[in-house]
């Protein structure tokens, strides 16, 4: 199961926002610091934290909390 607290912590750290800013509606559109540079680092950090490899086609597209949850859960189940 995906640990949502860990996910929020990673996102908050990488996007340099308070953890309370990461709610289920958080996305590139709602978080001003979430730019394409930070997004790359976020993907790298998520891979490291959850020990998964996010496929190329997903890496660029998971630009919201919900999408990240979805992709990570799939990857974790497949392990």
């Amino acid at each position: 199961m995906l640990d949502e607290n860990t996910l929020k912590q990673v996102m908050a750290t990488l996007l340099t926002v308070d953890i309370t800013a990461i709610d289920s509606e958080a996305s590139m559109d709602t978080i001003a610091t979430w730019d394409s540079l930070r997004h790359m680092n976020l993907v790298l950090a998520l891979e490291e934290e959850f020990k998964v490899s996010i496929p190329d086609e997903d890496a660029g597209n998971i630009t919201s909390y919900k999408l990240i949850m979805l992709v990570l859960e799939e990857l974790l189940q497949a392990k």
Binding site: Q9, T13, L14, T16, N41, L44, A45, E48, E49
Partner: peptide
């Protein structure tokens, strides 16, 4: 240390 840990520690 992971990227997240390094970022937190640096901050």
């Amino acid at each position: 240390s992971t990227l997240t840990q390094v970022m937190q520690a640096v901050a």
